[in-house]
Design a protein around this nucleic acid. Sequence first.
DNA 1: GTCTATAGTCCGATAGAC
DNA 2: GTCTATCGGACTATAGAC
Lengths: 187, 187
Amino acid sequence: MVEAHAVPGPARDRILEAAERVVAEVGAARLILDVVAQAAGVSKGGLLYHFPSKESLLGALAQRYVQNKEQCIEAAKGGFSEQDHSRDLKACIVGILGSDPRSKAMGAALLATAANDLTLLEVIRERLVANNNELAESSADFARAAIVTLAIDGLMMRESLRISPFTEDQRAQVVRELMKIADESYR
Amino acid sequence: MVEAHAVPGPARDRILEAAERVVAEVGAARLILDVVAQAAGVSKGGLLYHFPSKESLLGALAQRYVQNKEQCIEAAKGGFSEQDHSRDLKACIVGILGSDPRSKAMGAALLATAANDLTLLEVIRERLVANNNELAESSADFARAAIVTLAIDGLMMRESLRISPFTEDQRAQVVRELMKIADESYR
DNA sequence: GTCTATAGTCCGATAGAC
DNA sequence: GTCTATCGGACTATAGAC
């Protein structure tokens, strides 16, 4: 069970944090507002003051997840030379595929949420379009670069859903090969 | 609105068909049993005789979708020579990425369903493992072949969710390049 | 502005008649 | 195998305390 934590801090953050714990435990479909409120140490009404509906709470969680991923990508850029033309693409590989298990558990829940939330999808779509435009003008071989991003998405999805068939060794091979294709697409 | 259709046939099939229409219209999250029952021309109780819970109804829809996809892949094999070592991989590209818009609308709903249904995920996982074993022993370059399957998944997901950033032309480039990588991985 | 308590409403699920 | 009636849980709304 998810226990109430007498943590301090703004109620909004406590609620978000509690919701994350609940979602990680039972999934987005079985998330119950009463449970979240209790875990966050607020009343249900208090929760609904900050998030006027269940959907808006899940939406906020999803936003948080996306922001976190973007930070991971930014951080990963530091690992590559500024001269490396395929640096951004490689940072995506490392940043997205290197995330912790906790984050992946959340991924499944948010996939389920996103699939029914047009607003959220639009945010993600805009991000993808921007990313794609960059690729289209910077890469020498657009199609290869695009395939790298698609494969990243595919692998992330499989791992979020825990249906990836790869052995540890196979996964390492795949990541190595992705790096290679990333390089190929910039010369 | 989804209208009641006085179609004949077993109630179970009528319900499934009605549920598909409803899901295509409002999404899995907003599917209401009463609405499905009315559209299928049965009472809610009648519906719940065939599918004892909402989850089981959505699960049945998902199964149907997966079977349909497998048939598409089988059918696509006919388009390639039996001598072509990468025939199966290419059939996946054509079979999965060539599906009609109706089927894609369903994809989003079922992604949302699958993310919360461990039983269903297990079925899909077994399928992926079998597929992966085939790839591992047949392909000359396992990693490349795996990346093709990952990219297919990634593109299918994006298109199901309607967040794909590609222009028509870019998409065609990507598919062509996938075919090329499929060939590369078998020599 | 932030939160509690309570009341309202919707909808999935069950029980039992036919 | 299907229907009607009803229950009960969970989301939402509102009035008002601090």
